[in-house]
Amino acid sequence: MNTLIKKLLTLILVIAALQAKAAKVDTVLTHSQVMKKDIKAVVILPAKYSKKVQYPVVYLLHGFSGNYADWITKDAAVQNLADQYNYLIVCPDGAFASWYIDSPVNNYWMYDTYVSKELVAYIDSHFSTIKDRSGRAITGLSMGGHGALYLAIKHQDMYGAAGSMSGCVDLKPYAKDFAINQILGKYEDDPKSWADHSVVGMLAQLKPNALKLTFDCGADDFFAGINNDFHQQLLAAKIPHDYTVRPGGHTWDYWSNAVNYQMLFFSRYFNKLN
């Protein structure tokens, strides 16, 4: 057997071994009773998943104009993080522009209730999970960064840790952008609603150490200013948190890097290291 054939056989065996240990990626069909429709979600199971073990879960939200498959198609390496940290990663569908809010103007958009109640209930009933806030974290990018912090602060009984990557943490400056007005109505009609549904408007609901928080933003991102402001507000309120500014903009190159640090943060939380 010549050297080239030996190398090819070795390569084939290595690939087979890696595939055998790879995370399992499923697309599940969930149902939202409140919106009366079926909604897809990606569920990534670690390679060693066993029904005999209860696993933590990280809910990973997509951004504006995205869908449930964004993370696994645009950053396929994210599935390796489920293996690395031995927890489930769930990527919900938040529609084109739901902002993960229960819309006060259109009851067709009820993605707060869907993600934090209906989807969590589905995941906990169909998979072997830690059915407690100590085993749940949530994060996301852009619209999903807003959604993750908004949902975690609003539902501190459901999530123990939360993060955001390039999150739109203040909706008010973007009253005419990103279809937010289809969820909240016109800003001038109800500015209080816009303030109340913005992450920066929820600061009073946070108590020191009640929720483990991490968020980041690229230095060249158009959301950098509002993230810096939120960081300063958290400091003034003495709310412990991790905040990082890295080189980069509002791009998948940035998020594919940032998600690694987010997932490490959550692993440390689940293992009581934070």
Results as ranks from 00 to 15, higher is better:
136 R>D: 13
136 R>C: 14
136 R>S: 12
136 R>P: 11
137 A>V: 10
137 A>K: 00
137 A>W: 05
137 A>N: 05
138 I>C: 09
138 I>L: 10
138 I>G: 12
139 T>C: 14
139 T>F: 04
140 G>I: 01
140 G>L: 08
140 G>E: 09
141 L>S: 09
141 L>V: 06
142 S>D: 11
142 S>Q: 08
142 S>F: 08
142 S>L: 07
143 M>D: 13
143 M>Q: 13
144 G>M: 06
145 G>M: 00
145 G>W: 00
145 G>H: 02
145 G>Q: 02
147 G>K: 01
147 G>Q: 01
147 G>Y: 02
148 A>Y: 05
148 A>G: 11
148 A>D: 07
148 A>L: 09
148 A>C: 05
148 A>N: 07
149 L>V: 02
149 L>I: 03
149 L>A: 07
149 L>F: 07
150 Y>F: 15
150 Y>T: 01
150 Y>A: 00
151 L>A: 12
151 L>W: 05
151 L>F: 06
151 L>M: 14
152 A>G: 06
152 A>C: 09
153 I>V: 15
154 K>F: 00
155 H>K: 05
155 H>V: 02
155 H>T: 02
155 H>P: 12
156 Q>E: 14
156 Q>T: 01
156 Q>I: 01
156 Q>R: 00
156 Q>M: 09
157 D>L: 04
157 D>Q: 15
157 D>K: 13
157 D>S: 15
158 M>K: 15
158 M>T: 15
158 M>G: 03
158 M>H: 05
159 Y>M: 12
159 Y>D: 12
159 Y>A: 03
160 G>P: 10
161 A>D: 03
161 A>R: 01
161 A>V: 05
161 A>P: 12
162 A>T: 15
162 A>I: 10
162 A>H: 07
162 A>D: 01
163 G>F: 09
164 S>F: 08
164 S>W: 05
165 M>E: 13
165 M>W: 02
165 M>H: 04
166 S>N: 12
166 S>M: 11
167 G>I: 08
167 G>P: 09
168 C>Y: 04
168 C>D: 08
168 C>I: 13
168 C>F: 03
169 V>A: 13
170 D>T: 06
170 D>A: 14
171 L>D: 03
171 L>S: 09
171 L>Y: 12
171 L>R: 12
171 L>W: 09
171 L>Q: 14
